[in-house]
């Protein structure tokens, strides 16, 4: 079996994989990092979004083998110990979730959104940028509010 090595949440990791192994399978099944979810498995829903070298990527649509040597960050790597990341805190404060299944992907997408679009995000930008993340519970209103607040909080911290 081929072996793949990468950095996940700051730690060097490696594992034997089938060439077919998707990044999300490597994260969940090999590394047991089950915070990254598989919703649709067809690159529509965004529940599996992680950061690869800083870019938001749907981990259900990338081969683990392709990401040899990559720097990957998952939802587990966002908080600083017991202290939530400002975007996680904003989702909690604004009740930006109901069942929570889409939340890891929503938060990873949001953090990268702030990186590309800045700390002052208007509603239109947020809704457009969420095109690749589906939520079947909330109707998005509180998610949009949470992202705007989280972006501001990230700015205040920067």
């Amino acid at each position: 079996m081929p072996k793949v090595s990468m950095t996940v949440n700051g730690a060097a990791v490696s594992g034997d994989v089938d060439s077919r192994t998707l990044l999300v399978q490597f994260l969940r099944e090999t590394l047991r990092l089950t915070g990254t979810h598989v919703g649709c498995d067809t690159s529509q829903c965004g529940c599996c979004v992680v950061h690869v070298n800083g870019d938001a990527v749907k981990s259900c649509t990338a081969l683990a083998m392709s990401l040899e040597g990559a720097d990957v960050r998952t939802i587990e790597g966002l908080a600083n110990g017991d202290q939530l990341h400002p975007m996680q805190e904003a989702f909690r404060e604004n009740h930006g979730l109901q069942c929570g299944f889409c939340t890891p992907g929503m938060i990873m997408t949001s953090v990268e959104m702030v990186k590309r679009k800045g700390f002052n995000l208007d509603e239109k930008t947020i809704r457009e940028e969420l095109e690749g993340n589906l939520c079947r519970c909330t109707g998005y209103h509180n998610i949009v509010k949470a992202i705007a607040a989280g972006a501001q909080a990230m700015g205040a911290k920067a």
């Binding site: 690159s43 870019d55 938001a56 990527v57 749907k58 690749g132 993340n133």
Partner: peptide
């Protein structure tokens, strides 16, 4: 094209 994560790849 697609969505932000798709455009990243």
């Amino acid at each position: 094209i697609g969505d932000p994560a798709v455009r990243n790849r």
